[in-house]
Nucleic acid binder design. Sequence first.
DNA 1: TCATAATCGAGACGGTACGTCGGGTCTTCGG
DNA 2: CCGAAGACCCGACGTACCGTCTCGATTATGA
Lengths: 199, 199, 199, 199
Amino acid sequence: MSAAKPQPRRVHSGNRRDDAARLAVLHAADDLLVEHGFGALTVEAIARRAGVAKQTIYRWWPSKVEILLDTLIEDSEKRLPVPAGSPTADSIRGYVRGFARFVTRDPAGKVLLALLAEAQHDPGTAKSLHERFLGPRRVRERELLATGTEAGEIAPKLGPDATIDALLGPVVYCALTGASVPRGLVDTLCEDLLRPRAD
Amino acid sequence: MSAAKPQPRRVHSGNRRDDAARLAVLHAADDLLVEHGFGALTVEAIARRAGVAKQTIYRWWPSKVEILLDTLIEDSEKRLPVPAGSPTADSIRGYVRGFARFVTRDPAGKVLLALLAEAQHDPGTAKSLHERFLGPRRVRERELLATGTEAGEIAPKLGPDATIDALLGPVVYCALTGASVPRGLVDTLCEDLLRPRAD
Amino acid sequence: MSAAKPQPRRVHSGNRRDDAARLAVLHAADDLLVEHGFGALTVEAIARRAGVAKQTIYRWWPSKVEILLDTLIEDSEKRLPVPAGSPTADSIRGYVRGFARFVTRDPAGKVLLALLAEAQHDPGTAKSLHERFLGPRRVRERELLATGTEAGEIAPKLGPDATIDALLGPVVYCALTGASVPRGLVDTLCEDLLRPRAD
Amino acid sequence: MSAAKPQPRRVHSGNRRDDAARLAVLHAADDLLVEHGFGALTVEAIARRAGVAKQTIYRWWPSKVEILLDTLIEDSEKRLPVPAGSPTADSIRGYVRGFARFVTRDPAGKVLLALLAEAQHDPGTAKSLHERFLGPRRVRERELLATGTEAGEIAPKLGPDATIDALLGPVVYCALTGASVPRGLVDTLCEDLLRPRAD
DNA sequence: TCATAATCGAGACGGTACGTCGGGTCTTCGG
DNA sequence: CCGAAGACCCGACGTACCGTCTCGATTATGA
């Protein structure tokens, strides 16, 4: 590091999309959200922080919401995968517990909350969030329940969507209100909703 | 010269706060939110629509969020009161059903969703929402459960906050994702959570 | 002074115009102009400083300019009277010297400069300034020259208005540009313009 | 679809300053001053009239005063240059006459009067006006007198600054009071002040 | 080999809304 | 009726971002 070169200025890759710029944007967005909240998440601030021109952002993302969706999708697939294969009652309960942890403690969970919030303010966000995150994930969650039911691991008394809403809803609501998820809540719901009465 | 009086100009009340202006602001905010969404809810737009000077808004409300809170508090007390007196299992279930209707179909419910959303973006909103709406209402909801439990009407298996989160959370989550509350969801939850297994 | 009475609140006189309020306004205007410049001279600031309601100002003065004109007229008649009676060449020169002092050093002179300036920005000010100050004073100055000429004290080579403009103009210009009046300027002009060449 | 191109929208020049915007601002300011006076000369009005964003004005000018100074400097150098080279008594008198015309009849002269006025209200304006207009011009005027004196064309009886103030002051004063410069005033002053007594 | 084409940083541009300030009008209330 | 107080509508202030644009430089590609 020489003092004579204060800005080593990341060199870009010519003709092709610059992946370094892409990552810089994603991380800048993530960091700004976590550090200063959604209010500080302006395109200008992201560009500043990422050391990127605004135009570079607008070239690749239609809005800051899509940036957040990109990070959310990547992170959630790493840190909160929907269990595949043949689930057990335990693994399903584990997923709900993981969801609670994700949404209340993981920085990436803040991104989901922020997008869920922004979706209330802007229909375009709602559409994107459903198409790119909520919808696909819900499909896999339904498969999870279906496979578990077929295998006799669980016997939900409600329909699949109702069951999922009943399990995840309280967790999300707690996160949105800044509360921690009360101890026992997830387990009780899993027992009540996934086991038949005559268990 | 008579026709040259183009400004009938609402007359205001001198030294005291002008209640007509107050109501005009509240209604304008409500209308704008319902008609064009939170994104269009700027102080300038409210002022324009209400026929009021911006300064009059800033004089009485620190932010547009407080305007919405004012309307939410007024409306929710009219349209979704927490049952007082001695509750029955039925009246408690009725409250949860009413909550579902409020939050998915009542225009005033949109205000709650918008504020819950904005609270994710701005800590000040979160604070106000808790202090002025969520907190006081939660107090009354806890009393509802406590009275019902003492009277032997219900026997919740979870703690009061967990019970309330488990009942209202799914409803709020459905509303936030734009889904309607699945038929049977509320009833099933009430049965499971408010009655002991061996009922 | 008792701590229990923080505002001794000047008592007003009921039915008649309150002269204390009138003076408080005039002094407040004067003080604000001298201390913080014309930019700080708002009606609100005058009212604050004078401990007077805005309406009291608007009731008696059509604008802050008229307030300044009131003080200017009062002060200039005290501190820079146009010599009356039978003038000598010396007394005329003394008047011009006095004018220079007034306009460059006397705080009341700042009021004249401010009004002359404001007259460039606002035709109403120009009108008032002429009607209430410049015009009447010019009348007396012309009389001064006329009487002096008749008495043989002076023999102006230019017409009366031209002479006055030529004598006072440089002084005003110096004041406006923040310069002091160069030594010898006034005397030389008086000699050249009031005495015939072959004197 | 072809006629659907309603925005011909002046195209701007990318990374560099848009000269069209610069000129639009200068002309808008000039026009507003002449048409509606300094009172109507708000940044918002200039922006509106010039078809320019407010930010574009604030980007390049610290205040509306500097806009006026820009136009004044440009215009005065075109329409009222200080004679260069070797002056004659006639060319010097011609300059003073030109100054009188400029300040009483040329729209650009109104800009000078407005700035001189605003300088009374605001020290920053005074500073700028001196540094960018009055000072440099005064330097050239002193050179004019010095050169003329050396050449024997004139023999001022007063110092250079006093001479200039005595020549221009009356003209400016007449302009400020809305009067026309009395016939003979300029010529008489030039004769008296630029020629030695024993002429 | 070298023109072409796409990307990048930079940042000017026309806009909209922000929250504040002062202007001038009005009404209430106490003396 | 006067004066203090202060709410009201209005419009300008100077700032922050929006999303679009043009620039000049950089670099991989293919004629």
